[in-house]
Every structure is written in structure tokens, then in C-alpha cells.
């Protein structure tokens, strides 16, 4: 297994640091998704800062793509709006650099392969590291699909965050985990992202089945929209990812509402005992 080496040469905390600390204290990580450039660059930078201050342990910073085929309507809407407002790959890295001036919360860049492929994988990984990223999650680069690209992520010093789905076979779960680092991201329901009122009832069983096979920290996401759900998932997994519901909060009430929403999740997760 490739352990996280991403920040060995800097004083920024690594993703592994966050989860190690969480495991010691029994505290699940809160992992919000922020779409770079939604609704505009300045607002998304403000949201990054607000998320860190509201108790985010790791932040997924989305680089918008024209064809987000793994995302539901809410995140599609955010991505299209960000692109219309002029967001680019370099624009997203600039936001990250600005965030790094006063925040050390680990950041995972979250995107699709084509913008990175066009940028050049090696060049992108280097630029992302320079800007202060710790990890990279590419939605349409499943484990094993392109070993050369995946190894470029790892040798470039970023954690390669891999996805698991309810449809991932048990044998494949182990293979996915072997090449990943930082944490594994379990898609809690078969489907694209979008707030759901109910999480799958089998979640506990699914998480246990994965845990039996892997040692990397396990974050769960895709569909978490209420403090109760966050607390439930936080009690089962090492991390809770929240995406669409945060976008919706920002759409309704701006950065302030986004921060309040994250605080409500954080409080519920901390209170669950």
C-alpha cells in the first residue's frame, strides 16, 4: 500500500494525520464538497474558508467539467454555473493557493479526467501540489482503468483517493484499496449525487463488509443531507462527505447558510454519543 507521503516535505497536515487523529479521539471527519467558481470565484473562496472554520477536516474542491456524468442535478447546476462564470483548472488552483494563505485544512481536488488529461497529468499533479493540494479524486478514473495515470498521481506526491460502490465486488474492494491512499470514498447508495431523505438501511452492513477487507480510513458520501444522517454515518465510518446539500444551502442562503449547515452537521456528529 502506498502510504500518504504528500506533505512529508511541508508542515501542512496530511490526510492521514487527520484520520489518525480522528481514530484516536473517536471523531469522524467532516468532508464538504465545494465547487470551485460556484457561484463565482470569490464566493467559492469564501466558502472554502467558511467550511474550514465550520469544522471541516478535509475539503473536496471540485474542478468543474462540462460533462459531469457521475453527478446529480444539483452539482451539475453548480458546475455549469461555475464554467459560465469563467472557472478553469488554473482558476481552481489559484483559489486553493489563496485558501492556503491562512488555512491548513487538507484539500482533495475532485474532478473528471479530461480537464486533467488536457492539462497533462504530470504537470497537473505538480501544480496541484504547489498550490497546496493533498489528494486527487478523479470520478471517471476507476481503480485499474489506467495504471500509468494513477501512478503519476502517486509518484507526484498526491494521495490517490479511490471510490467504492455498492456494486463493487468483494474481491475488487481489496484491489481498489491496495492502490489507494489517504482514504477510501464509499458511495453510500447506488446512484449519482443528490440529497436523499433516507440513507440506505443496509449502510451499516456494507461499511462493516468493507472494513473487514481494508485498513484505509473509509469516508461515506453521496446523499447525506441532514444533521441526523451525518451523525448516523459518522457513527459508522471514519468520514462523512456532504456535497449536494451544501450546494443547495449556498444557493438558498449564500456562504453564511453553507457555514451554518456545516456547523449543524458538525455538532450532530460530535453529539452522537
Amino acid at each position: 500500500m502506498t502510504e500518504s507521503v504528500s506533505s512529508a516535505s511541508t508542515r501542512l497536515p496530511t490526510i492521514a494525520d487527520v484520520f489518525n487523529r480522528g481514530r484516536e479521539t473517536g471523531r469522524a471527519a467532516l468532508i464538504p464538497y465545494v465547487c470551485a467558481g460556484f457561484p463565482d470565484a470569490d464566493t467559492s473562496l469564501a466558502l472554502l474558508r467558511e467550511a474550514a472554520e465550520a469544522g471541516a477536516d478535509v475539503i473536496e474542491l471540485g474542478i468543474p467539467f462540462s460533462d459531469p456524468l457521475a453527478d446529480g442535478p444539483t452539482i451539475q447546476r453548480a458546475a455549469f454555473r461555475a464554467l459560465e462564470a469563467g472557472m478553469t483548472v488554473n482558476g481552481a488552483l489559484t483559489l486553493l493557493r489563496q485558501f492556503r494563505v491562512d488555512h491548513d485544512t487538507p484539500v482533495v481536488l475532485f474532478t473528471y479526467l479530461n480537464p486533467i488529461h488536457r492539462y497533462g497529468m504530470d504537470r497537473f499533479v505538480e501544480a496541484a501540489r504547489d498550490a497546496g493540494a493533498q489528494g486527487l479524486l478523479i470520478t471517471d478514473l476507476p481503480a485499474g482503468a489506467d495504471p500509468a495515470l494513477e501512478s503519476a498521481v502517486r509518484t507526484g506526491g498526491l494521495d490517490l483517493i479511490r471510490l467504492l460502490a455498492p456494486t463493487t465486488t468483494p474481491a475488487r474492494v481489496s484491489r481498489v484499496a491496495e492502490g489507494g491512499s489517504g482514504f477510501l470514498y464509499y458511495i453510500s447508495r447506488t446512484g449519482v449525487t443528490g440529497a436523499r431523505t433516507e440513507l440506505r438501511t443496509e449502510l451499516a452492513r456494507e461499511v462493516e463488509a468493507i472494513r473487514a477487507r481494508v485498513s484505509l480510513p473509509l469516508a461515506v458520501g453521496f446523499g447525506i443531507s441532514t444533521p441526523e444522517q451525518a451523525a448516523l454515518v459518522g457513527g459508522l465510518a471514519d468520514g462523512v462527505v456532504v456535497g449536494s446539500a451544501l450546494v443547495e444551502a449556498v444557493e438558498t442562503g449564500g456562504v453564511e447558510a453553507g457555514g451554518a449547515f456545516l456547523r449543524s452537521l458538525r455538532e450532530a456528529m460530535d453529539r452522537r454519543e
Binding site: L69, A70, L113, T139, D140, L141, P142, A143, A145, D146, R162, L163, L164, A165, P166, T167, T168, T169, R172, V176, I187, T190, G191
Partner: peptide, 12 residues
């Protein structure tokens, strides 16, 4: 070619 798809589809 290849298989650049969300993880959910690999099994299918």
C-alpha cells in the same frame, strides 16, 4: 478506448 467510468458501473 478503455473504461473511464464511475466505479458503480464496473461490475455491470
Amino acid at each position: 478506448g478503455g473504461r473511464y467510468v464511475p466505479e458503480t458501473l464496473i461490475a455491470a
